[in-house]
Design a protein around this nucleic acid. Structure first.
Lengths: 242, 242
DNA sequence: TAGATTGTTAATCGATTAACAATC
DNA sequence: TAGATTGTTAATCGATTAACAATC
């Protein structure tokens, strides 16, 4: 499908294809979701304006983002929903299978293992690991919980592409070290610690407490602004009466 | 403590204090965590270099970030850990109480309700809501699960500053509308939907599937690069033999 | 051909970082 | 005073966006 253009091969980009900016990469999954939703509604063609509206971004930004992947629209017409969807999925790598291992089967790990969104797109829970599997239920969603000590044995049986860390903060770095040691190069970290990993390993962090703090900052700011407006009105009143 | 300097009051910033860039706001919680960790280790003074190292950022960036808050370091010496910690906490708004309501007490909502990181810092689970509370356990961590239909009654009893949406995607927008209608202006959304909210309402989104897709992209890219390197070596070999 | 919409250019904006004067 | 380190400046980099030529 869609043979790589000679121009791309000749371009002075790094090995592996065109450079896609990080900000764009982070938006591709959003576009994909919106396209899937459009397809479900039976819509087969959409303009950049429509798709951008669904994702809440500027249409120029959307077009620029898509231009990094190639030229998959038709001027004067728009984008074929299914075709664009396939191209984005291919670019992200969702046309292949991504087995995931979850480490730490506490409340969160349990929730993640049951998360239905996991199943969609190439992602698949392939292994569940815990330091003390005897404390967990024996299996979650049909996947047995194995001891983290048996990591190498488990990975020998079941290849894993992405490790998800759902342990307490104190255990996270040790788990990351062992995952990296076992050859895993993509980690999603739910523990509130900054993992240190060698170059060539990707880590993404999801941190509830950071998100709440960012919300708190803005909330406080709004409250403060109200107070100040009140104070300004009061001060204006004082000036009047002075 | 630390009276607002006249210069600040006179500065042409918007109501509510100095403008802090979004990128900086997102890092303040990280600095706070690192400072707490230093304090626990009994360290009372640190340089920007040391603190930056702990958070894995450039020390110039750290100093610039802190400069938005004020001038809390000592040239030639560094930062007083406790003092800086207090100043950042105050700036974020963590010196006050932030009651949180969690909506959707499924696997994820359950995990969030039990999340210990919640308790630390002013955050506190104040209410748990579910469309069908009879399907949930009666209470989680001592907080009863109430019907989302009773939202207004619950909020009348217990003030809530931040709403956390942990419902399925399909229900999220409706829940957001009702939260906003009830006067909540900060929402943390775990459902994979882009919420539409009026101006003046903050929404942060946590999306497992997006994070996994970003990891997949980079993982695929690394694999592709390896292949290309292999191909290049093979091609070079062919040229040799040709 | 006329209308619509992409893909791209160039201007703008915001974030990062090196360098250093200020100052403890 | 000499050494250390902050706070700030200015250069650089990357991301956003308006505008429009290309083209269906």
């Amino acid at each position: 499908m869609t043979a790589r253009k000679p121009a791309d091969a000749a371009a002075g980009t790094q090995a592996g294809g065109r450079e896609i900016p990080e900000a764009t990469v982070a938006r591709l999954p959003e576009y994909l979701r919106a396209l899937t939703s459009l397809a479900e509604q039976g819509i087969s063609v959409c303009s950049s304006e429509e798709l951008a509206g669904a994702v809440n971004v500027n249409s120029a930004k959307l077009r620029k983002d898509l231009s990094y992947l190639g030229s998959y629209g038709t001027r004067g017409v728009g984008y074929d929903v299914d075709y664009l969807r396939y191209q984005i999925a291919r670019e992200i790598g969702l046309t292949q299978d991504w087995p995931v291992a979850i480490v730490g089967i506490g409340n969160l790990g349990h929730a993640l293992a049951n998360y239905s969104g996991f199943g969609t797109r190439g992602f698949r829970v392939a292994a569940l690991l815990d330091a003390a599997p005897e404390r967990c239920e024996e299996s979650v969603g049909g996947i047995p919980v194995r001891s983290f000590d048996d990591l190498d044995a488990v990975l020998a049986e079941t290849p894993v592409a992405i490790g998800v860390i759902a342990t307490p903060a104190g255990a996270a770095q040790g788990v990351a070290d062992r995952l990296v040691g076992a050859g895993i190069t993509s980690i999603l970290n739910f523990a509130p610690t900054n993992l240190v990993v060698p170059a060539g390993v990707s880590v993404r962090k999801v941190d509830l407490s950071v998100e709440l703090q960012i919300l708190a900052y803005h909330e406080q700011r709004r409250a403060g602004a109200e107070e100040l407006r009140g104070a300004a009105i009061a001060a204006a009143g004082e000036e009047q009466s002075a």
